[in-house]
């Protein structure tokens, strides 16, 4: 199953909105929403340093923030 960890949406923009509109907004949908029970022998990071840096032993759970594709667009 292909999963994205950021979802984007486009709120209605009124011609009378007082602030300059943010056209594209986003919210997080991190990996734990899709995993179910963690499968046995899930691949781990090669080094302990990487794991510490990412905050998890398993790349499958790593969710970078802010998202690479950006949080919002004007």
């Amino acid at each position: 199953m292909h999963q994205t960890n950021t979802k984007y949406f486009y709120p209605y923009i009124s011609p009378f909105d007082p602030c300059p509109p943010i056209v594209r907004k986003s919210y997080s949908t991190p990996p734990q929403l899709y995993m179910g029970f963690q499968p046995p022998n899930l691949a781990q990071f090669q080094t302990a340093k990487e794991a510490l840096y990412c905050g998890t032993l398993w790349p499958a759970f790593h969710d970078p923030y802010p998202p690479k594709e950006g949080r919002e667009d004007n």
Partner: peptide, 15 residues
């Protein structure tokens, strides 16, 4: 960011 990732893992374990 480390702390945010830990929340993700905790959520996984509670699920």
């Amino acid at each position: 960011k480390f702390l945010r990732e830990r929340e993700i893992i905790h959520s996984q374990r509670f699920r």
